[in-house]
């Protein structure tokens, strides 16, 4: 069995999968209490499937997203993987959204761009060539910066679950997935983990989330 969870965005995701069989999968919109809800789901799943004894891997969403959310997911994943001695995988929300886009009708587009809302005035994005899911460096800027870069591009398909961003981009004529189809799905974490098995196992001691924001670089520079 593979356990996947993602606490990095407001959509808490949990999935328990064995081979092709999906035992459990949920995405729940919640603004806080990810750590409490996640533990409740884990207890529920263990009561139903006794998964602890049969676990073969844990995959976690690494963000970027909420500073607290990404850390909560990462520390719980590390703790579980260490205690149960199972391999640990971690993928960014960008990779999850790019993976998800492969299942949408994006044939005419050469580039897929997942966009993540961080806070007012700041979004993160990264370009994936058609079908690709491996992350390179990502960009940080305002929604206006994003529009300046992509407005008028007919070869770009944007994936974002944040409705406010989606409305802004659609109004500017950018092709976007419907936000309801762009919610980070924990099943994508399992798919990525299975696809890259052997090459994607994370080290429990060194795995870190993607924080995204440059706030500390700015603070350091100003001191």
């Amino acid at each position: 069995m593979i356990l996947a969870f993602d606490t990095s965005t407001p959509w808490l995701g949990v999935a328990l999968v064995e081979g092709k069989e999906v035992f459990f999968r949920v995405t729940e919109y919640t603004r806080a209490s990810h750590s409490l809800l996640l533990m409740q789901y884990l207890e529920l799943l263990d009561a139903r499937f006794s998964f602890r004894e049969h676990l073969e891997g844990i995959v976690v969403g690494l963000g970027p997203g909420s500073f607290t959310g990404v850390k909560v997911g990462a520390i719980i994943a590390k703790g579980l993987a260490y205690a149960l001695q199972v391999p640990l995988g971690g993928f960014s929300t960008f990779e999850v959204l790019a993976s998800l886009a492969r299942r949408l009708d994006t044939g005419q587009f050469e580039v897929v761009v997942p966009v993540i809302f961080h806070r007012k005035g700041e979004v993160f994005w990264v370009e994936f060539q058609k079908g690709a899911t491996s992350l390179s460096s990502f960009q940080v800027g305002s929604p206006e910066d994003f529009l300046a870069q992509y407005k008028g591009r007919n070869d770009v398909f944007v994936v974002t679950p944040w409705r406010n961003l989606w409305e802004l981009f659609v109004r500017a004529g950018i092709f976007c997935a419907d936000p309801s189809q762009a919610i980070p799905d924990p099943l994508e974490l399992v798919i990525l983990f299975e696809e890259r098995k052997g090459g994607s196992t994370e080290n429990i001691f060194s795995m870190l989330p993607l924080y995204g924001s440059r706030v500390f670089e700015r603070e350091s520079a100003s001191r």
Binding site: S35, M39, L42, E43, D46, R52, F67, T68, K71, V72, I75, I76, A77, K78, G79, L80, Y82, A83, L84
Partner: peptide
């Protein structure tokens, strides 16, 4: 809060994993 949360989450994960 953020610092406490790391310790509490790790403890919960270990407690859950090992019953």
């Amino acid at each position: 809060l953020g610092a406490l949360l790391m310790g509490v989450c790790l403890a919960k994960a270990l407690s859950f994993a090992l019953k």
